[in-house]
Measured scan of single mutants.
Amino acid sequence: QTQEFDNEEEARKAEKELRKENRRVTVTQENGRWRVTWD
């Protein structure tokens, strides 16, 4: 699953929550947008 964010702060917040659920999370930056991908 993927979700896009406008800034790193929001993306990192989402990453932190997903990691609490023991998910594999990848955060990438593309064209000024932050993308959080998880399984």
Results as ranks from 00 to 15, higher is better:
Lys20Trp: 04
Glu9Phe: 10
Glu21Pro: 04
Arg19Met: 13
Thr26Gly: 03
Ala14Val: 14
Asp39His: 08
Thr2Val: 13
Glu4Pro: 02
Val27Met: 03
Asn7Lys: 06
Thr26Asn: 07
Trp34Gly: 00
Asn22Ser: 07
Glu21Val: 11
Glu4Met: 15
Arg23Gln: 10
Thr2Ala: 08
Asn7Ala: 04
Glu4Cys: 14
Glu10Phe: 04
Val36Gln: 01
Arg35Asp: 04
Gln1Thr: 11
Glu9Gly: 07
Thr37Trp: 13
Ala11Gln: 02
Val25Thr: 05
Thr28Trp: 11
Glu8Ala: 03
Glu4Lys: 03
Trp34Phe: 04
Lys16Tyr: 12
Val27Phe: 02
Gln29Cys: 10
Lys20Gln: 12
Trp38Ala: 13
Glu15Thr: 03
Arg12Phe: 05
Glu30His: 11
Lys13Met: 12
Glu8Asp: 02
Thr28Ser: 13
Glu8Ser: 02
Lys16Pro: 01
Leu18Asp: 01
Asn31Gly: 10
Arg12Lys: 06
Gln3Trp: 15
Lys20His: 11
Val27Trp: 00
Glu30Asp: 07
Lys16Gly: 10
Gln29Ala: 08
Gln1Pro: 06
Ala14Ser: 08
Gln1His: 14
Ala11Asn: 00
Thr2Ile: 12
Trp34Asp: 00
Val27Tyr: 00
Gly32Val: 02
Thr28Pro: 00
Arg33Ile: 11
Trp34Tyr: 03
Ala11Phe: 02
Gln1Ile: 10
Glu4Leu: 15
Val25Ile: 06
Glu30Lys: 06
Arg19His: 10
Thr37Leu: 06
Thr26Pro: 00
Glu30Arg: 04
Glu21Arg: 10
Thr26Lys: 08
Glu8Thr: 01
Thr2Ser: 13
Trp38Thr: 13
Trp38Lys: 02
Gln29Val: 12
Arg35Thr: 14
Phe5Val: 01
Val36Asn: 01
Val27Asn: 00
Gln3Lys: 12
Trp38Ile: 15
Lys16Val: 12
Glu15Leu: 05
Asp6Trp: 07
Gln29Glu: 14
Thr37Tyr: 12
Val25Glu: 00
Asn7Cys: 09
Thr28Gln: 06
Phe5Met: 02
Arg33His: 10
Lys16Thr: 12
Val27Lys: 01
Trp38His: 09
Asn22Gly: 15
Gly32Trp: 01
Trp34Ile: 01
Asp39Pro: 07
Ala14Ile: 11
Thr37Gly: 05
Val25Cys: 03
Arg24Asp: 11
Thr28Tyr: 08
Lys13His: 12
Glu30Asn: 06
Gly32Phe: 02
Val36Thr: 01
Thr2Glu: 08
Arg19Leu: 15
Thr2Lys: 05
Arg35Leu: 15
Ala11His: 00
